[in-house]
Structures are given as C-alpha cells and as structure tokens.
Amino acid sequence: MIELGSQGPVIECRSLTKRYGDVVAVDGISFTLERGTVTGFLGPNGAGKTTALRLLLGLAEPTSGGALVFGRRYRELEQPLRRVGAVLESGDYHPSRNGRDHLRVLALAAEIPPARVEEVLELVGLGRAATRRVRTYSLGMRQRLGVAAALLGDPELLILDEPANGLDPAGVRWLRTFLRDLAAAGRTVLVSSHLLAEVAQTVDQVLIIDHGRLLAQGPLNELTNADKTLEDIYLELTGSESR
C-alpha cells in the first residue's frame, strides 16, 4: 500500500508543550522519527515521557506546539489502529473480562476481523489463556495482552510505554526478542523506558528527556563510545547520580 506522503517522517513533534497549572510536564519537545527506526525514549520516572506519548496519541491536548503521526494529528487518522499500535504503561484492562474478549472489543470497534484476534493471541503466546479473566493473568501476561492489542491492526508504527516494567527475566527476554523482530520487519518503534540495559541492546537511536525537556537525541553509536556508555551519558544529563 503506497500512500500519498508516505515519504515524510512517521512522527514529528514541534515545540510540544503541556502545562498542568504551574507544572510544565512537557516543555517544548521537538524531534522527528523516520521510517524503520527503533528509538528509545529515555528519562527518569516523572520526566514527562508518558505525558508526551499521550499528547502524541490524542489522549491529551497540548498546551502549545503539536505532534503529527504520518503527517496528521492522531485524532485525524482514519482507522488509527491500522497505522499505530500503542502499549500504554497503565495496563488498561477490565479485570473480569477475558483476554479474548478484551481484544474482540477493540477489534469490533476498529472493524478488524475476528480471525486476527486469534492470530495475535497465538503470536504473543496467550492462545491457551484466552478464556481466562485478565485478573488471573501475571504481569507478564498482561503486558503481552497489551502488545497483542497493539498488533491487532498490523500497524507500521509501534509505541510502547515502559514495556519492561515489572517483567521477570523471561518476560524481559521475550520483549527484547519481540522488539528485534519488529525492527527486522522494518517497522518504526518508539519505546519509552527508564531501564537502560534493555533499551541499549535494541534501539538505533535515543531521545533523552528530563523535567519535560529533551536533553539529547541521536544515533546510539554517535552518542556512545568506548569510554562513555549510554548509562554514563544518561546519568550525566539527567543528574540522576546525585539524587
């Protein structure tokens, strides 16, 4: 499917700003993400990552500036689930709904055929747990259900907010493999995290944010060298060492 304007950036943020009263959660962030890149969105807890992603996804309105996905505001995308898949940090499930129905609810609204629900359940390894209520799922299973939901529309862009949070080692390994597979398939991925080790192994480039401001951006191999790891740069920029 070739679409008009498909050569433009996948994500474009221009002076993206969000204020809540006196607090500036996101402070004039500007960046663009090109097709097929895997980008780590890094910063301490409370740095503004989640707010920035919510602005990007049309869940919240920016105070000023703007964010475009495939050249449009998210709210103006036709069938957004077929372009953008998002896994939000908040883990949004009704505890007494089962995994399959959770996905079917979304598939019906997005006009995605029910067979795709079964496909993504198998893809994330939840086929056998599909009829169990989500309240009985482990944290890792919930994360995978979130990933399944994001993959429903087979989107070109994946946005994952803190996907490694609370995962056990097996879950972290699964996530790492999954991110690599996405990258190998040429998809564009934006993954936010405060866990550097996971991200450094997977991403091509990083955005480092703290106190709502973008402190550094660029390809991982240009920012780091033999003397400076991603961790060194991150701690230097965010001042986390002295906290």
């Binding site: 049309g58 869940l59 998210y74 709210r75 957004p80 939000l88 908040s90 949004d92 009704h94 979304l106």
Partner: peptide, 18 residues
C-alpha cells in the same frame, strides 16, 4: 465510569480518537 476506572477508556479512544 467503569472504563474510566479501569483505564479501558484509553484503548477505546485510541481506536476511536474522535
């Protein structure tokens, strides 16, 4: 209100952002 309480309002609005 159950959607708001459990947060499912977020995926609901991601599917239908209008």
């Amino acid at each position: 209100t159950a959607e708001i309480r459990y947060g499912t309002i977020r995926p609901t609005f991601l599917v239908q952002p209008k």
